[in-house]
Amino acid sequence: MWSSWGDASNDKDENLRAIFLALLAMMLAIFWFLWSRKKCSKNPIPPLPPGPIGLPLLGYLPFLGTKLHREFTELARVYGPIYKLRLGSKLCVAISSPTLLKEMVRDHDTVFANHVPTTAALVGSYGARDIAFAPYGPDWRRLRMVFVSKMLSKTNLDDSYALRREEVHKSIGHIYDRIGIPIDLGKLAFSTATNNVMRMLWGGTILK
Protein backbone atom coordinates (compact mmCIF):
# COMPACT_ATOMS: atom_id res chain seq x y z
CA MET A 1 0.00 0.00 0.00
CA TRP A 2 2.77 2.39 0.88
CA SER A 3 4.52 1.48 -2.37
CA SER A 4 1.43 2.30 -4.41
CA TRP A 5 0.99 5.60 -2.61
CA GLY A 6 4.68 6.45 -3.20
CA ASP A 7 4.44 5.64 -6.92
CA ALA A 8 1.33 7.81 -7.22
CA SER A 9 3.12 10.66 -5.44
CA ASN A 10 6.10 10.38 -7.77
CA ASP A 11 3.82 10.37 -10.81
CA LYS A 12 2.07 13.47 -9.49
CA ASP A 13 5.40 15.25 -9.00
CA GLU A 14 6.48 14.33 -12.50
CA ASN A 15 3.23 15.66 -13.95
CA LEU A 16 3.56 18.93 -12.01
CA ARG A 17 7.14 19.30 -13.20
CA ALA A 18 6.12 18.68 -16.83
CA ILE A 19 3.29 21.21 -16.56
CA PHE A 20 5.62 23.77 -15.01
CA LEU A 21 8.22 23.31 -17.77
CA ALA A 22 5.53 23.58 -20.46
CA LEU A 23 4.17 26.81 -18.93
CA LEU A 24 7.70 28.21 -18.64
CA ALA A 25 8.42 27.41 -22.29
CA MET A 26 5.16 29.06 -23.35
CA MET A 27 5.95 32.18 -21.31
CA LEU A 28 9.44 32.42 -22.83
CA ALA A 29 8.02 31.99 -26.35
CA ILE A 30 5.40 34.71 -25.75
CA PHE A 31 8.03 37.04 -24.28
CA TRP A 32 10.36 36.49 -27.24
CA PHE A 33 7.49 37.08 -29.71
CA LEU A 34 6.44 40.34 -28.03
CA TRP A 35 10.05 41.54 -27.77
CA SER A 36 10.82 40.82 -31.44
CA ARG A 37 7.56 42.46 -32.51
CA LYS A 38 8.36 45.57 -30.48
CA LYS A 39 11.86 45.68 -31.95
CA CYS A 40 10.53 45.37 -35.49
CA SER A 41 8.01 48.16 -34.87
CA LYS A 42 10.86 50.48 -33.86
CA ASN A 43 13.07 49.46 -36.80
CA PRO A 44 10.69 48.31 -39.56
CA ILE A 45 12.29 45.94 -42.06
CA PRO A 46 11.36 46.44 -45.72
CA PRO A 47 9.51 43.50 -47.25
CA LEU A 48 11.85 40.85 -48.64
CA PRO A 49 11.40 39.17 -52.04
CA PRO A 50 9.83 35.70 -52.13
CA GLY A 51 11.93 32.58 -51.82
CA PRO A 52 12.06 28.95 -50.73
CA ILE A 53 11.57 27.95 -47.11
CA GLY A 54 14.60 26.20 -45.66
CA LEU A 55 15.32 24.36 -42.44
CA PRO A 56 16.13 25.98 -39.09
CA LEU A 57 19.84 26.81 -38.75
CA LEU A 58 20.71 25.11 -42.07
CA GLY A 59 18.48 27.20 -44.32
CA TYR A 60 18.28 25.99 -47.93
CA LEU A 61 21.73 24.40 -47.95
CA PRO A 62 20.55 20.75 -47.69
CA PHE A 63 18.42 21.17 -50.82
CA LEU A 64 21.19 22.52 -53.09
CA GLY A 65 22.93 20.10 -55.41
CA THR A 66 26.31 20.28 -57.12
CA LYS A 67 25.01 22.09 -60.24
CA LEU A 68 24.25 25.43 -58.65
CA HIS A 69 23.60 27.27 -61.92
CA ARG A 70 20.72 24.92 -62.68
CA GLU A 71 19.41 25.12 -59.11
CA PHE A 72 19.37 28.93 -59.20
CA THR A 73 17.79 28.96 -62.67
CA GLU A 74 14.99 26.72 -61.43
CA LEU A 75 14.47 28.91 -58.35
CA ALA A 76 14.26 32.00 -60.59
CA ARG A 77 11.67 30.22 -62.72
CA VAL A 78 9.55 29.57 -59.61
CA TYR A 79 10.03 32.77 -57.58
CA GLY A 80 10.89 35.36 -60.22
CA PRO A 81 14.01 37.32 -61.24
CA ILE A 82 14.82 38.33 -57.65
CA TYR A 83 14.40 35.96 -54.71
CA LYS A 84 15.81 35.27 -51.27
CA LEU A 85 17.19 32.13 -49.68
CA ARG A 86 19.02 31.37 -46.46
CA LEU A 87 22.37 29.63 -46.64
CA GLY A 88 22.97 28.61 -43.06
CA SER A 89 22.54 31.74 -40.96
CA LYS A 90 23.15 34.09 -43.91
CA LEU A 91 20.25 35.69 -45.77
CA CYS A 92 21.11 35.91 -49.47
CA VAL A 93 19.29 37.66 -52.31
CA ALA A 94 19.80 36.27 -55.82
CA ILE A 95 19.27 38.36 -58.97
CA SER A 96 18.89 36.64 -62.32
CA SER A 97 17.62 39.54 -64.44
CA PRO A 98 20.13 41.57 -66.50
CA THR A 99 17.91 44.65 -66.09
CA LEU A 100 17.87 44.39 -62.30
CA LEU A 101 21.59 43.64 -62.19
CA LYS A 102 22.34 46.69 -64.34
CA GLU A 103 20.22 48.84 -62.04
CA MET A 104 22.06 47.50 -59.00
CA VAL A 105 25.67 47.80 -60.21
CA ARG A 106 25.29 51.01 -62.24
CA ASP A 107 22.37 53.12 -60.99
CA HIS A 108 22.67 52.24 -57.28
CA ASP A 109 26.27 51.06 -57.09
CA THR A 110 27.12 53.09 -53.97
CA VAL A 111 24.20 51.53 -52.07
CA PHE A 112 25.42 47.99 -52.76
CA ALA A 113 29.14 48.77 -52.63
CA ASN A 114 29.80 47.81 -49.02
CA HIS A 115 29.36 44.17 -48.09
CA VAL A 116 30.73 41.84 -45.43
CA PRO A 117 33.62 39.78 -46.89
CA THR A 118 34.05 36.13 -46.02
CA THR A 119 37.00 34.81 -44.03
CA ALA A 120 38.61 33.48 -47.20
CA ALA A 121 38.23 36.90 -48.85
CA LEU A 122 39.81 38.62 -45.85
CA VAL A 123 42.80 36.27 -45.96
CA GLY A 124 43.22 36.41 -49.73
CA SER A 125 42.94 40.20 -49.93
CA TYR A 126 45.10 41.00 -46.85
CA GLY A 127 42.20 42.32 -44.81
CA ALA A 128 39.82 43.40 -47.62
CA ARG A 129 42.24 45.89 -49.15
CA ASP A 130 41.71 45.07 -52.82
CA ILE A 131 39.21 46.51 -55.26
CA ALA A 132 36.82 43.57 -54.91
CA PHE A 133 36.30 43.61 -51.14
CA ALA A 134 37.44 47.05 -49.92
CA PRO A 135 34.67 49.29 -48.53
CA TYR A 136 33.48 52.16 -50.67
CA GLY A 137 35.40 55.33 -49.98
CA PRO A 138 38.45 57.39 -51.06
CA ASP A 139 40.80 54.37 -50.98
CA TRP A 140 38.46 52.29 -53.13
CA ARG A 141 38.04 55.13 -55.65
CA ARG A 142 41.82 55.41 -55.97
CA LEU A 143 42.07 51.65 -56.55
CA ARG A 144 39.41 51.85 -59.23
CA MET A 145 41.18 54.74 -60.93
CA VAL A 146 44.47 52.80 -61.01
CA PHE A 147 42.71 49.63 -62.17
CA VAL A 148 40.91 51.37 -65.03
CA SER A 149 43.81 53.55 -66.16
CA LYS A 150 46.65 51.00 -65.82
CA MET A 151 45.04 47.64 -66.54
CA LEU A 152 41.87 48.24 -68.56
CA SER A 153 43.01 51.14 -70.72
CA LYS A 154 42.65 50.72 -74.48
CA THR A 155 46.41 50.90 -74.95
CA ASN A 156 47.12 48.08 -72.52
CA LEU A 157 44.35 45.91 -73.91
CA ASP A 158 45.58 46.43 -77.46
CA ASP A 159 49.18 45.67 -76.45
CA SER A 160 48.16 42.38 -74.83
CA TYR A 161 45.93 41.26 -77.68
CA ALA A 162 48.56 38.89 -79.04
CA LEU A 163 48.94 37.20 -75.64
CA ARG A 164 45.20 36.65 -75.30
CA ARG A 165 44.96 35.37 -78.86
CA GLU A 166 47.78 32.89 -78.19
CA GLU A 167 46.06 31.50 -75.08
CA VAL A 168 42.77 31.07 -76.95
CA HIS A 169 44.60 29.21 -79.75
CA LYS A 170 46.19 26.93 -77.15
CA SER A 171 42.77 26.08 -75.77
CA ILE A 172 41.38 25.38 -79.24
CA GLY A 173 44.39 23.16 -79.97
CA HIS A 174 43.77 21.30 -76.71
CA ILE A 175 40.22 20.56 -77.86
CA TYR A 176 41.41 19.28 -81.25
CA ASP A 177 43.98 17.02 -79.58
CA ARG A 178 41.22 15.37 -77.53
CA ILE A 179 38.73 14.58 -80.28
CA GLY A 180 36.54 11.73 -79.12
CA ILE A 181 37.43 12.30 -75.45
CA PRO A 182 35.04 14.11 -73.07
CA ILE A 183 36.21 17.61 -72.13
CA ASP A 184 35.20 19.68 -69.12
CA LEU A 185 34.42 22.97 -70.91
CA GLY A 186 33.92 24.82 -67.62
CA LYS A 187 37.40 23.90 -66.41
CA LEU A 188 38.89 24.73 -69.82
CA ALA A 189 37.20 28.14 -69.91
CA PHE A 190 38.37 28.90 -66.36
CA SER A 191 41.99 27.96 -67.13
CA THR A 192 41.92 29.99 -70.36
CA ALA A 193 40.61 33.10 -68.59
CA THR A 194 43.09 32.68 -65.72
CA ASN A 195 46.03 32.21 -68.05
CA ASN A 196 44.98 35.28 -70.02
CA VAL A 197 44.98 37.40 -66.88
CA MET A 198 48.33 35.99 -65.76
CA ARG A 199 49.90 36.64 -69.17
CA MET A 200 48.65 40.21 -69.06
CA LEU A 201 50.02 40.75 -65.53
CA TRP A 202 53.48 39.16 -65.69
CA GLY A 203 53.78 37.27 -68.97
CA GLY A 204 53.52 33.74 -67.55
CA THR A 205 50.80 31.21 -66.81
CA ILE A 206 50.05 29.06 -63.77
CA LEU A 207 47.54 26.59 -65.25
CA LYS A 208 47.98 24.11 -68.06
Rank of each mutant, 00 (worst) to 15 (best):
S89C: 10
T110N: 10
A134I: 05
H108L: 12
P81H: 08
W32Q: 13
K84R: 12
F63A: 01
Y136M: 09
L64Q: 06
M26I: 15
C40M: 13
T73Y: 06
L64T: 01
L55C: 04
C40Q: 11
F72G: 02
L68P: 09
A128G: 09
M27C: 13
K39G: 09
P44S: 08
I82A: 02
A94S: 11
A25P: 03
M104Y: 00
I95W: 00
L24I: 02
S89R: 15
M145V: 02
L152D: 05
V105I: 14
P81Q: 11
N43M: 11
N43E: 15
K67F: 06
P62I: 00
G65K: 05
A128R: 01
L23F: 10
V78E: 07
L24V: 03
I45F: 06
G54Y: 00
R144A: 03
Y83K: 01
N114V: 05
M26D: 13
R142A: 13
V116W: 09
A76T: 07
A22I: 05
S97I: 03
D109G: 08
K84A: 04
M145N: 14
T110V: 10
L75H: 00
L34W: 09
S96E: 02
P98M: 05
G65S: 04
T73N: 15
D130V: 08
C92V: 13
F112S: 03
E71W: 02
H69W: 13
F147I: 15
T119C: 08
I95Y: 01
V148K: 10
I82D: 01
F33K: 09
L55K: 08
H108I: 07
P52Q: 02
T110A: 11
P98D: 05
L122C: 08
D107R: 13
G127R: 06
H115T: 10
V111K: 08
I45K: 11
P44L: 09
I53Y: 03
Y60I: 03
H108P: 07
A132K: 13
K39Q: 12
T110I: 12
S36V: 14
D107Q: 13
R142D: 10
V93I: 09
N43F: 14
V93F: 04
R77Q: 14
V111I: 12
S97Y: 04
V123H: 08
M104P: 01
Y126M: 14
L85V: 05
A120G: 12
K39S: 14
T110F: 14
G127M: 08
W32R: 08
R37C: 11
P62R: 05
R86L: 10
L91F: 00
P81M: 08
L122Y: 07
R142G: 02
A22E: 09
